[in-house]
């Protein structure tokens, strides 16, 4: 056993380090439940900001929901927005400090229910911000109520018999709708349940921040996520449930990558 310990200790040396958490992520213990996708996405954002060297120029906007305390974990300046208003708050910040990087971070209730108007109009204006959208099809923080993205038949605390379209309407594919808006520069849907998916999502977030620097419209990254507490499944089973049920409704991949539309397409012909 000691031989093995010696061999391990030989490997664990600074010169052999291949992965350590970004220094932008501090040591505060995250309040998220075990297995929560938020933690992974937080880490990816921190890594992107660190790798781009834009810590001093980046302002985050946290939502109301589980991620309200995102500001506790990533060591940049933050503003905490009212429920659903993060895109408006981010707009305010970006408009008066256009040289900074501004991103909003919202869940499905925040972005796709109470904040639908703010979301649509920020994207339609082509605000040069990054919007991160965590879609886990449930209200996590308040105890697992139905979200606009809750699947038909999905059991939540306010759809205890499963979401019924007669009563509750349909799961909202807001990302597809946003991709239609001329102000959207880059719209993508990713996930973080496997190492490969995590690496893709990181690339997408990096790309979104790079698009912000180009000022060619809104960069929108949805991350289809799990909520094992809300779904009442283990983290591993949540990932399986997500792959089986969420992905068919919320297929992964880029929805738009063209930059915002040419204004000439929309211009009046004569005054």
């Amino acid at each position: 056993m000691s031989v093995l310990t010696d061999r391990i200790n030989e490997i664990i040396k600074p010169e052999n380090l291949v992965y350590a958490k970004s220094p932008l992520l501090n040591d505060d213990l995250m309040h998220y439940c075990p297995g929560c996708s938020h933690g992974v996405v937080h880490r990816l954002i921190a890594e992107v900001i660190e790798e781009m060297g834009i810590q001093e120029q980046t302002i985050g906007v946290s939502p109301v929901g589980c991620a309200v305390f995102a500001y506790n974990y990533i060591d940049i300046d933050w503003q905490e927005a009212a429920h659903g208003r993060a895109p408006a708050v981010a707009t305010g910040i970006k408009r008066v400090m256009p040289e900074k990087y501004v991103f909003s971070y919202q869940g499905d209730g925040d972005l796709a229910a109470i904040g639908t108007a703010e979301t649509f109009h920020a994207v339609n204006r082509g605000e040069n911000i990054v919007m991160i959208f965590i879609n886990n099809a449930i209200y996590g923080m308040t105890g697992g109520q139905m979200a606009p993205t809750t699947l038909v038949g999905q059991i939540t605390s306010t759809t205890p018999h499963g979401r019924d379209v007669d009563l509750n309407g349909y799961p909202l594919r807001i990302t597809e709708l946003l991709a239609q808006l001329p102000g959207a520069a880059y719209v993508t849907r990713q996930s973080v349940q496997t190492p490969g998916a995590v690496r893709k999502t990181k690339k997408a977030i990096r790309k979104a921040f790079e698009i912000q620097a180009k000022k060619i419209g809104t960069a929108f990254v949805e991350v289809v996520s799990t909520c094992s507490s809300g779904w009442k499944l283990s983290p591993v089973d949540s990932n399986k449930w997500m792959e089986e049920n969420m992905f068919p409704q919320y297929p992964l991949g880029d929805l738009k990558d063209t930059g915002r539309a040419d204004a000439e397409l929309y211009r009046i012909k004569a005054k």
Binding site: E10, I11, V18, Y19, A20, L29, G39, P195, V198
Partner: peptide
Amino acid sequence: GCTNCSAVCPDSCITVYRV
């Protein structure tokens, strides 16, 4: 030392070394 574990870790509590 493939870093798959650290990639999926939601709490960023895994550090990886490789030789």
